[in-house]
Nucleic acid binder design. Sequence first.
DNA 1: GCCCAGGGTGTTT
DNA 2: AAACACCATGGG
Length: 269
Amino acid sequence: MSHIILNSRDNFSLGATVLSGQCFRWKESDGGYSGVVDGCCVKAFQYGDSIEIHGDISKGEEFWKKYFDLDRNYSAINDEIITLEPRLSQCETFSRGVRILRQEPFEALCSFIISQNNNIPRIRSIISRLCEKYGQKTGDDFSFPTPEELSAASADEFTSLGMGYRAPYLIDAVRRVLDGRFDIAAAADTPTDELRRMLLEIHGVGPKVAECVLLYGFSRLECFPVDTWIKKAMNEIFGNDSPLLSSPYAGIAQQYIFEYIRANYQRKK
DNA sequence: GCCCAGGGTGTTT
DNA sequence: AAACACCATGGG
């Protein structure tokens, strides 16, 4: 069989999900979307509720269902979000179909260290160069490098990829993963509060980056990263003391808010 | 040419 | 604890 077909539900939108600001390695590609996940280069298409995945599908159906979070009852979660915070009604409607991906933790950690005080097109291009230089060729793209593949890199090499002052931050993260001070394998079973403390020990990882790694790399859906866009939304839409913020699905709402405000915000004169 | 970006660190009040 | 300067780079 040359491809996998997955069934989705609750208005899943493949395009809205992979092009949202939570990941940096997917791009539009003649009617579908191409990307590299866990070293597998694939091209995905959506036809109604069916998702077709072509390319390196060696990881099997379950892996991709989990990656796209296709089994979760998003309709019920959306209802809960609106009940907790009715002012997000428009926002939820606008962003409906977006899912929180289960990304590879190491890739999420590196990506969001690079993301700080940076814009999304630049983040994408820096990560693309990082993969091309240190990753493995897969299909017509490159895998995200492993910690081992980054182990010999110098800060100067990272700087030459355009990372600027973040280069030594990435060096520290790679070192901590390699020497076990940040144990990714053990992290899956580590409680969120403790995992957050461990992340914050990494140089260049502050509150926002830590929340992103928890949410996108470790599927801790209650985590709520606050970046410049979310701050704008909190000022204009729902304040900073909403009951939503302590919801177990605050992170999902956060993604809706992020997509909505970024698409609709008008800079004031 | 300027403002800003999925912010964090180090220093000064 | 809160305010602030500074950080490297280039997209829009």
